[in-house]
């Protein structure tokens, strides 16, 4: 017990044994922390290759919410709202599943498949098409906020070229990591665009098409079922709008979130340093010990900034948006 107490005070309190500076604050200790973080990160990144089931981010994201938020942003900007298109949602779902099946995080598949192929596969003939991709966001609001914060995604989201939207939230194993991918597709039908300036004959066709569109619009938006959460991945719930293709983990698999684990490492190590520096400063001030070295106040300021930044950083990744026009 005495040994443990001495060791702890040697680590966090300035004294005779550590040359009046907590051992944790010695440069070699901080260097060891950096090395620990480095190897911890490597270990987390290589968990999938060790057979562990790694959870990128599982969250409750509904497609309905994404459509609602998108239209809310468009309304706020004075733009026309986009109509929900089951066809575009089917294309979005096919795109998401293709990304999981082929293991890519990009607009274009490794085999060269363009995103527009998924539009044509479901029979959606477009004049304008656009795609926004996001992954590992904790909520629909966070994803839409991220798109709005990025000027190029914002342009896609608010573009008046589009009048229909389709969204899919697909969950599955992407290169060994359980990931939630949001595929947001925008489109304007080719037929509809011709309709605005044509003859009666074509107007009739358009009218039929408009009826079809009306039918589509009035089709109830599938009530999005929340995705499986991190602690619910038991293979029990798979919604219409989401797919979990990796299957349920066996009891022998480890479920970890790389981002949350790394955040935990960073937060803990920074907090330990910050607390130790503060305790060190208080003890030095009380004992009135003069010490050659860096300014503790400066270190505390810098580490406080680091800690706040770590807390502020959220998970989520975006790809630059992409669009296509048929002339």
């Amino acid at each position: 017990m005495q040994v443990l107490s001495n060791t702890i005070s040697h680590l966090i309190l300035p004294g005779y044994s550590n040359n009046q500076k907590a051992k944790l604050l010695h440069t070699e200790s901080i260097l060891a922390l950096i090395i620990l973080l480095f190897f911890g990160q490597i270990l987390i990144n290589h968990f999938p290759y060790l057979g562990a089931n790694v959870l990128g981010y599982a969250s409750q994201i509904s497609t309905d919410e994404i459509v609602r938020l998108t239209n809310e942003k468009r309304s706020n900007d004075g733009d026309v709202q986009v109509a929900y298109s089951p066809l575009l949602s089917a294309a979005a779902k096919a795109k998401g599943e293709d990304m999981l099946a082929k293991g890519y995080w990009a607009h274009v598949a490794p085999d060269g498949t363009q995103p527009w192929k998924f539009f044509s596969n479901v029979g959606y003939k477009y004049k304008y098409a656009g795609e926004n991709l996001a992954k590992d966001f904790p909520s629909a609001q966070a994803a839409v906020d991220a798109w709005m914060a990025s000027p190029s995604h914002k342009d896609n989201l608010l573009s008046t070229k589009y009048d229909e939207i389709g969204v899919a939230v697909v969950e599955g194993n992407l290169n060994g990591v359980d990931t939630t991918i949001i595929v947001q597709l925008f489109g304007k039908r080719y037929d509809t665009s011709i309709a605005s300036a044509t003859t009666d004959a074509s107007a009739k066709t358009i009218s039929e098409d408009a009826n079809q569109t009306l039918t589509i619009k009035t089709t109830p938006v599938p009530s999005p079922t929340p995705l499986i959460t991190a602690n619910q991945i038991t293979g029990s719930d798979i919604s219409n709008n989401s797919e979990k293709t990796s299957g349920s983990p066996t009891p022998f698999q480890i479920l970890i979130s790389p981002f949350s684990t790394k955040k935990g490492f960073s937060f803990t190590s920074t907090s330990i340093l910050l607390i130790t520096f503060t305790v060190d400063a208080v003890f030095l001030a009380r004992r009135k010990v003069a010490r050659v070295g860096g300014r503790t106040v400066a270190h505390v300021l810098f580490l406080s900034m680091v800690l706040i930044a770590i807390i502020l950083i959220q998970s989520g990744d975006l790809l630059p948006p992409i669009g296509d026009t048929i002339k």
Partner: peptide, 16 residues
Amino acid sequence: EYLIICLFGVYAILIL
């Protein structure tokens, strides 16, 4: 000392 604390802070954020 400043360099090592700087490296620690920068690395702790960059991995996220």
